[in-house]
C-alpha cells in the first residue's frame, strides 16, 4: 500500500486514524486537522511534508465510518455527514457569495468552503456543484485588472514581509 516514502509521522497518524470509531469523532478530527494544517491560512506548517497524505487518510476513514452508519441510502447520498440537507448547505454558501465583489473576501470564502464541505463532509455531487459556482466567481473577480497591479501593490495586499539573509 505504501510506496517507498514513509515517515514515522505518517505511521503515528495512521494509528490515530485507525482508532477512530465514530463519525462524530472522525468529523472532529478532520475539521481540526483541516483548520490547523491545510490551506494558506493554516495555523502551522509543521506537518507540511505529510499534510495531503494524512488528510486523505482521515477522509477515507471517515467515509468508511459514514457508510457503516445505519442510515438510509437516500440520506447517505444526499445529506451532509452530520445529517443536514446537502443541497441546502451548499445553497447557503452560494448565497453568502452573492454580495461579495472583493476578490480577497471571495478567496477567503472559497478556501473556507473547501475546508468545511470537501467530501466526505458533503457528498461530491453537491460539493462540486457548489464549488463550480464559487470558483467561477472567484476567477472572474481575480482576472480583471490582474496584469495592472504592480508586485509591490500585491505584496501590500497580501501583507507579506520581505526577507534577506543577514
Amino acid at each position: 500500500m505504501a510506496n517507498w516514502y514513509n515517515t514515522e509521522t505518517r505511521d503515528e497518524w495512521q494509528d490515530q486514524i485507525n482508532s477512530l470509531r465514530s463519525v462524530s469523532a472522525g468529523v472532529e478530527c478532520l475539521q481540526s486537522f483541516r483548520a490547523d494544517h491545510t490551506g494558506p491560512d493554516r495555523k502551522t506548517y509543521d506537518l507540511k511534508k505529510e499534510v495531503t497524505w494524512i488528510e486523505s487518510r482521515i477522509e477515507m476513514r471517515l467515509g468508511q465510518l459514514h457508510s457503516e452508519e445505519l442510515i438510509s441510502d437516500e440520506d447517505l447520498l444526499s445529506k451532509t455527514i452530520d445529517g443536514k440537507c446537502a443541497k441546502e448547505v451548499v445553497g447557503e454558501w452560494v448565497k453568502k457569495a452573492a454580495d461579495i465583489d472583493c476578490k480577497i473576501k471571495m478567496e477567503g470564502l472559497c478556501i473556507a468552503y473547501r475546508k468545511a464541505c470537501k467530501p466526505p463532509m458533503v457528498p461530491i455531487n453537491y460539493f462540486a456543484a457548489g464549488e463550480k459556482i464559487l470558483i467561477s466567481k472567484l476567477m472572474r473577480l481575480r482576472a480583471i485588472g490582474a496584469l495592472d497591479q504592480t508586485v509591490e501593490e500585491l505584496r501590500e495586499m497580501r501583507g507579506v514581509t520581505r526577507l534577506s539573509v543577514q
Partner: peptide
C-alpha cells in the same frame, strides 16, 4: 497506490488538486 511523493504543485483556484480521493465516494 501512487508512486510519486508530495503534493500536486499547482491546483485549481480555491485549492482543488488535479486528482484527489474526494472525486468519488
Amino acid at each position: 497506490g501512487s508512486m510519486d511523493v508530495g503534493e500536486s504543485v499547482q491546483k485549481w483556484p480555491g485549492g482543488r488538486p488535479l486528482f484527489g480521493v474526494e472525486s468519488t465516494a
